[in-house]
């Protein structure tokens, strides 16, 4: 088990190194930072000076090493556009994105599992058939379209919910939260639905098919033959076995929720890191882009690691906790 964790950690570090290389190469190949920073009127001498100051004349390996060792300490330099430390920028925007992603993920998981179980248990019912039909829309409509439609219906026509921003936020030290104010919570509703809908339908369809599979197994048949109540069979025996593969997918989806928050944040002008990234792309603000890339892949890698460990908790067959001899 410890060997397994170590191996996974080493793998994660390798992945991070590769991503670091990619984000580092952004500096060299995406536009010319010197031109961006100094504008068109700068003299050649100014440019050469800045080039020297930014270390752009050093050998690539040295630059990469510099980049790495500074990245590990959270130093990604100054934003070209805003002339602020990148890490500070990202940290100030991160709470908005994490709150949005977390709520989306939780809602998607709970509703997805619930509907999945419902449609699996009432396979031929009118209710499940309509849910399945609607879920097709959820899977196939692009996120931005759903967002725009929701804004149109609930913000423009019905005027129930705000169409952009986070509402009022409360400052808790280094974390700003929208959970504590009414406008903050109201602002969350539409983005959460937009961001979570796809994941929810995905989880629902997965739970449904897994559950149908599990309900056909011998141990469910045997549980019925033992006279256990339907509740014990469906929610104890069947659901637990269903969730083993679902956890992996749901965990990985959590990563993509954070990453794909970009689109939702753009549609709803949500002041998170996704929106920051989009703005940075427009201004070729390479340090921010590089830091964002690293941050997102770091979150992905960590979530993957957690999912792998969760497997051990859920599935006893993977635990080699004793030299258990069957005979």
């Amino acid at each position: 088990m410890i060997a397994f964790i170590l191996r996974r950690i080493v793998q994660s570090i390798l992945v991070m190194l590769v991503v670091a290389l990619v984000s580092f190469s952004l500096f060299r190949y995406v536009g010319d930072p010197v031109a961006t920073m100094l504008g068109q009127e700068a003299t050649l001498q100014d440019r050469a000076e800045l080039r020297e100051r930014l270390g752009l004349n050093d050998p690539i390996v040295v630059q990469f090493w510099d980049f790495l060792s500074r990245a590990v300490t959270g130093d990604f330099g100054l934003s070209y556009r805003l002339q602020q430390p990148v890490m500070e920028l990202i940290l100030s925007r991160l709470p908005a994105t994490l709150e949005l992603a977390l709520i989306s993920g939780i809602v998607a998981f709970i509703v997805g599992v619930g509907l999945g179980v419902y449609t699996a248990l009432n396979r031929r019912g009118v209710g499940s058939n309509s849910i399945m039909a609607v879920s097709l829309i959820g899977v196939s409509l692009p996120t931005f379209l759903i967002g725009v439609l929701l804004i149109w219906v609930f913000a423009v026509e019905l005027q129930w919910l705000p169409s952009f921003g986070r509402g009022e936020t409360v400052d808790l030290g280094s974390w700003t939260t929208g959970f504590l104010t009414e406008s903050g919570r109201a602002s969350l509703v539409l983005p959460v639905i937009t961001l979570g809908l796809y994941q929810m339908t995905l989880i629902m369809r997965l739970v449904r098919s897994e559950m149908l599979e599990v309900l056909r197994t011998d141990y469910i048949k045997f549980a019925r033959a033992r006279g256990l109540s339907n509740r014990a069979i469906n929610f104890g025996h069947a659901l637990k076995n269903t969730l083993v593969p679902v956890i992996t997918i749901a965990g990985l989806q959590m990563g993509s929720i954070i990453a794909f928050a970009i689109i939702t944040e753009t549609v709803f002008q949500w002041p998170g890191v996704g929106a920051l990234f989009i703005n940075s792309v427009q201004f070729v603000d390479v340090p921010v882009m590089a830091a964002y890339l690293l941050l997102i892949s770091f979150i992905f890698v960590v979530i993957n690691l957690i999912v792998d460990l969760l497997y051990y908790v859920v599935d006893p067959r993977l635990r080699v906790d004793r030299a258990a001899p069957g005979h």
Partner: peptide, 25 residues
């Protein structure tokens, strides 16, 4: 019928490898 199953009529299936739920002791 559920109350009769297990209580008054027990059943043993063919494959012991798949008759038990792997996630429960």
């Amino acid at each position: 019928m559920r109350r009769i199953r297990g209580k008054r009529i027990g059943m043993v299936f063919q494959d012991p490898l798949t008759s038990l739920n792997p996630l429960y002791t």
